[in-house]
Amino acid sequence: MKFIAKLLLILTATTIFSCSEKEKDEHYISEFQGTWTGEYTGIDDNGTWVLQVHPSGKISGIISSQLLNSEFEVTGEVKKNGSVNVASGSVSSGAVFTGNMSENVANGEWTFSLYNLSGEWTGTKN
């Protein structure tokens, strides 16, 4: 009987703590939320970008390429630690921007493997 009581106590505690963590994630509001703008540079291409960081940390935006004279929609995410990953299309054929966001500054590297392009990007929170 003691074994069953201990098992029920452990299961109840585990459930309470699990729900608490899940609830925290559901109510998480990214400190990076808002509009971010910047530019990217590389040997063969450069351009500008505008990203909207949503309260969940999800990212949507537009990247404008001077070389291709085109705009690309991008989606991605910024993690709680500021790590950013944004892509247009697939990772194998689209542009991929990785890096970090801090309080008001963002920077990192980008690649566009379909065209064998790469470089750096930087920006600020508006």
Results as ranks from 00 to 15, higher is better:
residue 9 L to G: 04
residue 11 L to Q: 06
residue 13 A to K: 02
residue 16 I to D: 10
residue 17 F to I: 14
residue 19 C to P: 07
residue 19 C to V: 15
residue 19 C to Q: 14
residue 21 E to R: 15
residue 21 E to W: 14
residue 23 E to Q: 14
residue 25 D to Y: 08
residue 27 H to Q: 14
residue 27 H to V: 13
residue 30 S to L: 02
residue 31 E to S: 15
residue 32 F to G: 06
residue 32 F to P: 06
residue 33 Q to Y: 13
residue 34 G to K: 00
residue 43 I to C: 08
residue 44 D to N: 15
residue 44 D to E: 15
residue 44 D to Y: 12
residue 45 D to R: 00
residue 48 T to D: 07
residue 49 W to C: 05
residue 53 V to D: 02
residue 53 V to P: 01
residue 57 G to W: 01
residue 58 K to D: 08
residue 63 I to R: 01
residue 67 L to H: 10
residue 70 S to V: 01
residue 71 E to K: 08
residue 71 E to N: 11
residue 72 F to Q: 00
residue 79 K to L: 14
residue 82 G to P: 06
residue 83 S to T: 14
residue 84 V to A: 08
residue 86 V to L: 06
residue 87 A to L: 12
residue 88 S to H: 07
residue 89 G to E: 01
residue 89 G to L: 02
residue 89 G to A: 03
residue 90 S to R: 09
residue 90 S to Y: 09
residue 93 S to F: 11
residue 93 S to C: 09
residue 95 A to Y: 08
residue 96 V to S: 12
residue 96 V to H: 12
residue 97 F to T: 05
residue 98 T to Q: 12
residue 99 G to Y: 02
residue 100 N to D: 09
residue 101 M to Y: 12
residue 101 M to Q: 11
residue 101 M to I: 12
residue 104 N to K: 07
residue 104 N to W: 05
residue 106 A to F: 01
residue 110 W to F: 09
residue 111 T to M: 02
residue 112 F to G: 04
residue 113 S to F: 01
residue 113 S to C: 02
residue 113 S to K: 10
residue 114 L to A: 10
residue 115 Y to E: 06
residue 118 S to N: 14
residue 120 E to A: 08
residue 120 E to R: 08
residue 122 T to V: 07
residue 123 G to R: 01
residue 123 G to V: 04
residue 124 T to Y: 12
